[in-house]
Write a protein that binds this DNA or RNA. Structure first.
Length: 252
DNA sequence: AGCAGAGTGCGTCACTTTCT
DNA sequence: AGAAAGTGACGCACTCTGCT
């Protein structure tokens, strides 16, 4: 039996763009597909299942690390197989390596371009407009990614934020609210203006939060890079010493 | 000191995704 | 389906840094 790697519950997010590589470019350029997730990994020679965590890159070899503090979960059906390279490397808790041959299941959606798709959403419509839309499909939100990674907590907006203040008192913390005088000389804020101000304020807060989460996400990826670089270095060293040992035994 | 360019954060718009 | 939340892109302001 071959090993199988599945992503949990992001089947609707096929073909998402990497926020790092897509920085500064919108619709132009080929989208680089990156999905981060908790995945369920079944190894042929290991325990029935092991919970792993990874940055998965379709069309590329993917390095997957197990996280000992994560409990295995039951995954829903209809998952996305993301690792399609036969020689993807899996790091298990035991530190052993497995080379996996991964085969798409009948109901599999592959998120990388030009790969098999048997889902209803993949019709025969190959119009440029549809392709363009598919290309623009967003990756999951940073909240979702971070939740999937089981990493940093998303902070709750404090109760004394400007948003709350505005909702209660109708005064904006940031921009000015346009006021009008009625026939009695009293000032009032037109409903439309108030709605707009509220929307702008909310969006301001949302943008701030989004940037914070983006930074957190990038930090998370950078940490992962550091870990993987260390592991890579250790593996190279190990390979080197094994080679030396082999050469020694050969010459004897 | 003055200037130019890079880097960063913010507010806003437009659009997508998620929630109710 | 409509509202709310999330986010990419853009332009602007500000700071920092290296150069003259």
């Amino acid at each position: 039996m071959d090993g199988m790697v599945e992503e949990n519950g992001t089947s609707g997010a096929a073909g998402v763009a990497d926020p790092l590589s897509s920085a500064g470019s919108s619709a132009g350029g080929a989208p680089h597909v990156v999905v981060t997730s908790i995945v369920q990994l079944t190894l042929p020679t290991q325990a029935p299942s092991a919970q792993v965590q990874s940055v998965i890159q379709p069309n590329q070899q993917s390095v997957i690390q197990t996280a000992s503090n994560i409990q295995p979960v039951q995954l829903p059906k209809g998952n996305v197989i993301l690792v399609t390279k036969p020689s993807s490397v899996i790091h298990t808790t035991q530190g052993t390596l497995q080379t996996l041959q991964i085969k798409p299941e009948p109901n599999t959606i592959l998120s990388a371009q030009g790969q098999s798709c048997s889902d209803d959403s993949c019709s025969d419509d190959e119009s440029p407009k549809r392709k363009y839309r598919e290309m623009l499909t967003r990756r999951p939100s940073y909240r979702k990614i971070l939740n999937d990674l089981g990493g940093a907590e998303i902070a709750v907006i404090p109760a004394d934020s400007g948003l709350h203040t505005l909702a209660v008192s109708g005064t904006a913390g940031g921009g000015a609210i346009v006021q009008y005088a009625n026939q009695d000389g009293q000032f009032y804020v037109p409903d439309q203006t108030r709605k707009r101000e509220l929307r702008l304020l909310k969006n301001r807060e949302a943008a701030r939060e989004c940037r914070r989460k983006k930074k957190e996400y990038i930090k998370c990826l950078e940490n992962r890079v550091a870990v993987l670089e260390n592991q890579n270095k250790a593996l190279i060293d190990e390979l080197k010493s094994l080679k030396e040992l082999y050469c020694q035994q050969k010459t004897e």
